[in-house]
């Protein structure tokens, strides 16, 4: 098997505290890899560290961030690269799509101009050819009348069209990996369906790998091949998406799946996970989920390691083998 496209090893992230305060530790022991062309979903509730993981990979964190570990992208270490090296890699090797396209686009330039700028950062092209490439990029993401849209400003486009423009911009330099942070959360559900299909098709067609950061497990189920669950700054489960949905091995993944209402479920009580995520400055020594876990036992007071329990499946739970957890569907119909 060839080397993975992205390999994240022992990634830690902290922020320098205010005077006299200890630094806030946000990420700990983050280890995962993404193969070429693979689509991976990174899930968890707010504050679990999924978005900062994406920003750390892009090196988009402020100077107060202290990053440890290595982030190897196609052989180069993103975590230690110089600012100039990072600029060369961003866009060309790794690109990012954000939740709110309106804040990522400049309101005073036509969208075609902005796409052209992204292209110019990595290639010198004659003006006419640049325009042709941009129009093609707009057409590739399903924007009707791309010639006309080229000259339009962001406010003239709908939310769905703006997100397509962002996807076109992310793809224009043919990166190996796209990080998409909640790319459909701000969109209506019928438009979300279009964008998800587009991302999946483009990834299949161009061989671009995708790291899909989202709280929406439905989006992951329908778009990704693998699902990584984060909780309180740690990866707690990493599994092929179908396995994770059918038979999660970490009680947190199971809790998330059980919390989702779906319309073919009997109406009755809503399921939920009691309690809340511990604050970064009040992390327990043992399992970080134990206080909310219905299966917690004495062994959970010890620090938990992320371990491989079968090929391609990792879990940070000492009780994983002993538990028979519910997934998206009940394990044994009552």
């Amino acid at each position: 098997m060839s080397a993975p496209l992205l390999e994240v090893r022992d990634l830690t992230l902290g922020f320098t505290g205010r005077r006299g305060q200890p630094p806030l530790r946000i990420l700990r022991d983050v280890n995962f890899s993404i193969a070429r062309g693979e689509r991976v979903g990174l899930v968890g509730e707010s504050g679990c560290g999924k978005s900062v993981t994406g920003l750390a990979l892009m090196r988009l964190l402020p100077a107060t961030a202290q990053i440890g570990g290595t982030v190897t992208l196609d052989g180069a270490d993103m975590a230690r690269a110089s600012a100039a090296q990072v600029r060369r890699m961003r866009g060309k090797k790794i690109a990012m799509i954000f939740q709110e396209p309106m804040s990522a686009l400049d309101p005073v330039f036509p969208v075609g101009e902005q796409l052209g700028e992204a292209l110019r950062l990595h290639e010198t092209l004659p003006r006419a050819e640049e325009k042709a490439r941009v129009v093609q990029a707009l057409a590739d993401v399903g924007i009707p009348a791309p010639e006309r849209r080229y000259g339009e400003y962001p406010h003239q486009l709908s939310g769905g069209m703006r997100q397509r423009v962002m996807i076109a911009m992310a793809l224009i330099n043919k990166p190996d990996l796209i990080i998409a942070d909640e790319p459909t959360t701000a969109l209506d559900v019928t438009i979300q369906a279009q964008i998800m299909d587009l991302l999946r098709d483009l990834s299949e067609r161009t061989g671009t790998a995708l790291l899909f950061i989202t709280h929406d497990l439905g989006v992951v189920a329908e778009t990704c091949q693998r699902m990584i669950t984060m909780y309180a700054g740690e990866i707690v489960e990493d599994a092929p998406v179908d396995d994770a949905l059918r038979a999660p091995k970490h009680p947190y993944t199971s809790g998330l799946l059980r919390s989702l209402p779906h319309f073919n479920r009997e109406r009755g009580q809503f399921a939920y996970i009691p309690g809340r995520v511990p604050a970064p400055n009040a992390m327990p020594r043992g399992c970080r989920f134990a206080a909310r876990c219905p299966h917690a036992a004495s062994a959970c007071a010890e620090p938990q390691v992320l371990r491989e329990i079968e090929p391609g499946r990792r879990v940070r739970c000492i009780r994983a083998e002993a538990l028979d957890l519910d997934g998206a569907v009940e394990r044994s119909p009552a």
Partner: peptide, 20 residues
């Protein structure tokens, strides 16, 4: 209804996606 992403393995998603 078909656009709502379902957190289910493929064979259990009994709605065919109709993309508008």
């Amino acid at each position: 209804l078909s656009a709502e992403p379902q957190p289910l393995p493929p064979e259990l998603r009994h709605r065919k996606r109709m993309v508008l």
